[in-house]
């Protein structure tokens, strides 16, 4: 794969192992369930193939030998405003995009069987 060459050019204190992540169909199905997505048999096959190269990319991070602290802080963050009640968008406007509405509520199919 071309991508590996790109990385082999560098002299860096990071070790890469290209075991190449493999993923079986069952794992892909589990991920689809977590993602609330459905795939046909063909799509599942094609995803399994693609995931192999995606995981190779992700595994570069997994296998990088790096220590240090994690900072979740952004450049300049959390400029929170005062907690004062203010006008917000009207309910009718916000509901205009909902697929089905009744009495200012969004209608969904029964959730209890």
């Amino acid at each position: 794969m071309q991508f590996k060459l790109l990385f082999h050019r560098s002299k860096k204190p990071v070790v890469f192992y290209f075991k190449g992540g493999e993923m079986d169909k069952k794992e892909i199905e589990h991920l689809a369930e977590l993602s609330k997505l459905e795939f046909s048999e063909e799509e599942l096959e094609s995803f399994a193939g693609e995931f192999k190269s995606l995981l190779e990319l992700a595994d570069i991070v997994k296998n990088a030998e790096i220590g240090g602290e994690i900072s979740y802080k952004s450049v300049d963050m959390n400029n929170l405003r005062e907690d004062e009640p203010k006008e917000s968008a009207p309910v009718e406007t916000l509901l205009e995009n909902a697929p089905q509405v009744k009495n200012d509520c969004i209608v969904v199919p029964r959730i209890m069987e």
Binding site: L31, S35, A58, V61, E69, I70, S71
Partner: peptide, 24 residues
């Protein structure tokens, strides 16, 4: 799908947390 994979239990530390560390 890729996002759910790197966040899912058992992989979160190896991928997502590591990536955050690299970003720092």
């Amino acid at each position: 799908m890729l996002g759910n994979f790197v966040l899912s239990s058992g992989y979160y530390d190896a991928y997502y947390k590591k990536a955050k560390r690299l970003q720092s």
